[in-house]
Design a protein around this nucleic acid. Structure first.
Length: 318
DNA sequence: GCGTTAGAGGGTCTGTAGCG
DNA sequence: CGCTACAGACCCTCTAACGC
């Protein structure tokens, strides 16, 4: 199976003349590390979109991948930046221009591309409620080190065909949690109570199968060690990227001290907690969900966000 | 209110090609 | 041989409409 890995050649930023890649400077200017709220602007739906109107962020969350990094605005990938032998980036055409072509097509960014603010503004029409919830959690927790974590090469038996297929599940949030001897990695799956997978008239909502699938993935040999190594590296990369930005004169808000400490001393990150937790956005209130559906899943480790104060991830049992 | 469905969007996986 | 770049296939997630 494909190894779960996080790596990025951040040195390429120092050996590249960044005036030839103005988009990189612009993306870093709009980077809000976890713990810092991005400025919010009102957005009103127009035309035939189904999206709800409401406040939208004007800031970017960075997620380190294997060989590249994504800059997200409200859960939409505004730019995918490859840092390997060279420095390059691409973004979807619908963020680059108002008249978006129908096709799923990405454009490589060039020397004339440096307008992240307008890319973010165009992305507002695509922001989903669950992703805006994730954005709120990022703003409230400096310990968030990854979002949209992809779980590669998971073999799952398709119940319809009985054939094993490779699927790429994702986990919404990855965070650090303080433990007695250092820090550990915890995983959160954000959900809205309105999500049909959280509800059933029967006894077993679909979310149970999803949690079981996560457990199966983490139970594979080597996975725990690989994930631990990957997130130690992630901390190093985040610190290195911020330093590049600061060296370029960009005031990226400060990182949580735990990320800095782990980057400096990776062994401070002791282990991962393979028990994925549910994070449910109950700020709007859903009496029916509380009474009928929540009781069916109370045994799943979870945190219910009922007020903005609850956005701070709890220090729960290991 | 619930379960199903389709469309949109976005990510990974795979294979292929090029390079040192 | 390993890494990188690229394109197409595939399947996930989310939203909202629809019928019961």
């Amino acid at each position: 199976m494909t190894k779960f890995e996080r790596k990025l050649n951040t040195k390429i930023l120092k050996s590249t003349d960044l005036t030839t890649t103005p988009w990189m400077i612009d993306l870093l200017r709009h980077w809000y590390p976890a713990d810092h709220a991005a400025p919010m602007v009102d957005w009103a739906a127009s035309g035939k979109t189904r999206k709800l109107s409401g406040p939208r962020p004007m800031g970017l969350r960075l997620a380190v991948r294997n060989g590249y990094a994504n800059f997200y605005c409200g859960g939409q990938s505004i730019a995918r930046v490859t840092m390997g032998r060279g420095l390059s980036a691409e973004t979807h055409q619908k963020y680059l221009a108002d008249k978006a072509p129908n096709a799923q097509s990405y454009t490589k960014l060039g020397a004339d591309h440096a307008d992240a603010a307008s890319w973010m503004a165009r992305s507002h029409a695509y922001h989903g409620i669950e992703k805006l919830f994730v954005e709120d959690v990022c703003a409230a927790n400096g310990t968030v080190i990854d979002i949209e974590m992809g779980l590669p090469s998971l073999n799952v038996i398709n119940p319809a065909t009985g054939i094993a297929q490779k699927v790429a599940l994702r986990i919404d949030l990855v965070a650090l949690k303080e433990v007695a001897d250092g820090w550990q990695v915890v995983f959160w799956e954000a959900k809205l109570p309105s999500d049909s997978r959280m509800r059933t008239t029967g006894e077993t909502p679909h979310i149970r199968a999803q949690m079981t699938t996560y457990a199966d993935w983490f139970a594979q040999p080597e996975v725990s060690a690989d994930v631990l190594a990957a997130y130690r590296e992630t901390c190093k990369i985040i610190v290195a990227l911020r330093q590049v930005a600061v060296d370029e004169g960009i005031d990226v808000p400060p990182l949580h001290q735990a990320i800095i400490d782990i980057a400096d001393t990776p062994s401070l990150l002791k282990r991962i907690d393979t028990q994925v937790r549910l994070l449910i956005d109950m700020r709007k209130g859903d009496k029916r969900f509380d009474e009928e559906h929540l009781p069916k899943i109370v045994d799943i480790p979870m945190h219910c966000v009922r007020s903005d104060a609850d956005l701070i991830l709890p220090v729960v049992r290991s």
